[in-house]
Design a protein around this nucleic acid. Structure first.
Length: 590
DNA sequence: GCCGTTTTCGGCCCGACTGTTTTCAGTCG
């Protein structure tokens, strides 16, 4: 069977939707193509596998027509309907859609009236002052398009979760200087802790409704928006109205778009719900409202003119007959059905975490000593910390020889003897070598409390090889967990072409845990893979991969990722108190 | 194109802001 790429297939459906939009075809049909793209893109298992097992046909949003297209793709590697659509317009038109402010209608006009097929031609037309002469276009629109192109050329695209949190904090700290607003908090994909963030949404609650009333202390929603757009870090204002402002801001990290929205207290819950998304989740909610004869928008849940709920998110879910759904689950991945049946999982929280499984020290490429790391972990309230320095093959990180590791184990035992309030676990991040064997002999591994086995080389090898290496490593009785299982670095390096269903199945069979690396540039396993592992009964091991005391603070990103994968406290190994952890660690060993 | 304890046909989520308009279309989230 052909090994498919869900991402590639998802992109094809997305592209078909784009072309149909430019062609002006039925918007509901376009919507269903977009839904197919989303559903397939999020599937953790290869579409080809799901097609054969019949599960694809049972997936909501996938109908007969889509099934036929997927089958055709599996059989031939192409989709005729896709080719036919692409033949109807120059494919280069699609890049115009990526310009902020340029949608399908504009693309169509630009193409039909000016024969513009791509961004270079559009720039030329702008320079020649042709764009503003088009019907429905004008000077301002032309200027907006020019800025949109500049932004596209400069923007780094989606940013990492930690960068987005930092940007949000910068804005929130600034907005707090304007008195009279009760709550200011992030919404959007940031609140859901999605692994990358397109723009940062900030919700502000309060302000005086009428200017005369507000004159004394001068705070209306409009003034809040004005305050925001005049912030020193704002580089360009994209839009500003009575309740909503949008701007590009400069942070210490990347340039990022921030949207600020002001809502009255009676609508704060509805607005928070609405702006937290995801869009797919919200569409489902509004459908439920419509079926019940109600209307849901960012101001509240309404029956005719009467407001049934709005001040708190909880009320809205309750009135729709649903249990409260944690923002981390709001992706339309089954959470609405479970909420209706009152069977949502109780998600793991940061407070459940008793220790960190993955930390480096000055012995290899870390910046803090064992004692300093122990001290920092104790200050975080942990019961234990795994010291897992690199093994000898990771030369670039000053990996330890067997002799050095043996001495480090003794050192850790000595330090444990005098440490109060925390226990160090002697460990190692051991390289999984090209043939699937480990970088240390079993005799040495047996002296360790925990072993994180990781692939650090030949990540681009074929699927069979990288999968074989990982499976073989799990066969080793001393391997506690597989470190950053897919090897991806967000925005820099793709994941290995790993057969994850096979890895997860083998993890379940061998009693090996899988790491959720909490470093926001990794988040590996990622959310949908965590969900697969949880469903298979595989334990997740959360580790920050800290290379200094500060990065022990990255744990919340790991917890959020596991929770986005529906993990409960019971699914996460490092929620166990030390005695129970020790007995779990013994179960796999001979 | 998908979907159905109101439907196998006829629906399909909702509003803010902008710019080009004389009342609204396009874009975005």
């Amino acid at each position: 069977m052909r090994v498919m790429s869900n991402a590639a297939l998802s992109a094809i459906f997305e592209r078909m939707a784009d072309v149909m939009e430019i062609l002006g075809e039925d918007r509901f049909r376009i919507n269903s193509y977009r839904k197919v793209a989303r559903v397939i893109g999020e599937m953790p298992t290869d579409v080809g596998v799901l097609l054969e097992s019949g599960q694809l046909a049972d997936t909501p949003g996938i109908g007969k027509s889509t099934l036929a297209k997927v089958e055709e793709f599996v059989r031939t590697g192409t989709i005729t309907a896709h080719q036919e659509l692409l033949a109807r317009i120059p494919p280069s038109l699609l890049e115009l859609l990526r310009i902020p402010g340029v949608g399908p209608k504009s693309v169509k006009t630009l193409y039909l009236d000016l024969r513009i097929r791509g961004i270079p031609e559009l720039k030329q037309a702008l320079d020649d002052s042709l764009v503003q002469t088009l019907p429905g276009f004008g000077e301002k629109k032309a200027a907006a398009i020019r800025r949109g192109i500049e932004f596209l050329e400069k923007a780094s695209g989606r940013i990492r979760l930690d960068q987005a949190f930092a940007a949000a904090q910068l804005v929130i700290d600034y907005l707090r200087q304007l008195a009279g607003f009760e709550r200011i908090q992030p919404a959007g994909s940031l609140r859901r802790c999605v692994e990358t963030i397109g723009d940062v949404d900030i919700l502000v609650c309060g302000g005086k409704a009428t200017p005369p009333d507000a004159a004394a202390d001068g705070q209306t929603p409009e003034q809040m928006i004005e305050f925001f757009t005049q912030a020193p870090f704002v580089e360009r204002v994209l839009g500003a109205g009575g309740t909503k402002g949008s701007a590009i801001i400069r942070t210490q990290g990347p340039v990022v778009q921030v949207d600020v929205r002001v809502v009255p207290p009676e609508s704060f819950g509805a607005a928070l719900q609405y702006f937290s998304g995801s869009k797919a989740h919200n569409v489902r909610l509004r459908e439920i409202a419509v079926k019940a004869g109600l209307k849901l928008n960012e101001y509240g849940l309404f029956e005719g003119q009467a407001m049934l709920a709005g001040a708190a998110e909880e009320e809205i879910y309750a009135k729709l007959g649903l249990d409260f759904i944690d923002p981390l689950l709001r992706e339309d991945r089954g959470e609405i059905e479970e909420a209706r049946k009152h069977t949502l999982p109780r998600l793991v929280r940061l407070a459940d975490i008793r220790g960190d499984f993955h930390a480096h020290t000055t012995a290899t490429d870390g910046s803090a000593t064992i004692e300093e790391m122990a001290q920092a972990a104790r200050e975080r309230g942990y019961d234990y910390l795994g010291i897992t320095d690199h093994s000898q093959s990771t030369v670039i990180a000053n990996g330890q020889s067997p002799q050095r590791l043996a001495r480090q184990i003794e050192q850790i035992h000595r330090i444990n003897g005098r440490l109060k309030g925390i226990t160090l676990l002697a460990g190692a991040e051991v390289d999984i070598l090209a043939d699937g064997t480990l970088d240390f002999e079993d005799e040495l591994l047996a002296d360790l409390d925990i072993v994180v086995a990781s692939v650090h080389s030949a990540l681009g090898a074929p699927r069979e090889r990288v999968t074989m290496r990982t499976l073989k490593a799990m066969d080793n009785p001393y391997v506690t967990c597989i470190g950053h299982p897919t090897g991806r670095v967000i925005g820099h390096r793709d994941a290995m072409d790993l057969d994850l269903p096979a890895v997860i199945e083998h993890a379940a069979r061998t009693g090996t845990a899988l790491e959720v690396n909490a470093d926001p540039s990794r988040l590996d396993l990622k959310d949908v893979h965590c969900k697969m592992a949880v469903e298979a009964g595989v334990k997740l091991a959360l580790g920050t991969d800290a290379h200094g005391t500060g990065s022990l603070a990255l744990m919340p990103f790991g917890v959020a990722t596991a929770a986005r994968g529906w993990a409960t406290k019971g699914d996460v190994l490092n929620t166990l108190p030390l005695p129970r952890l020790r007995s779990w660690l013994k179960t796999k060993r001979p």
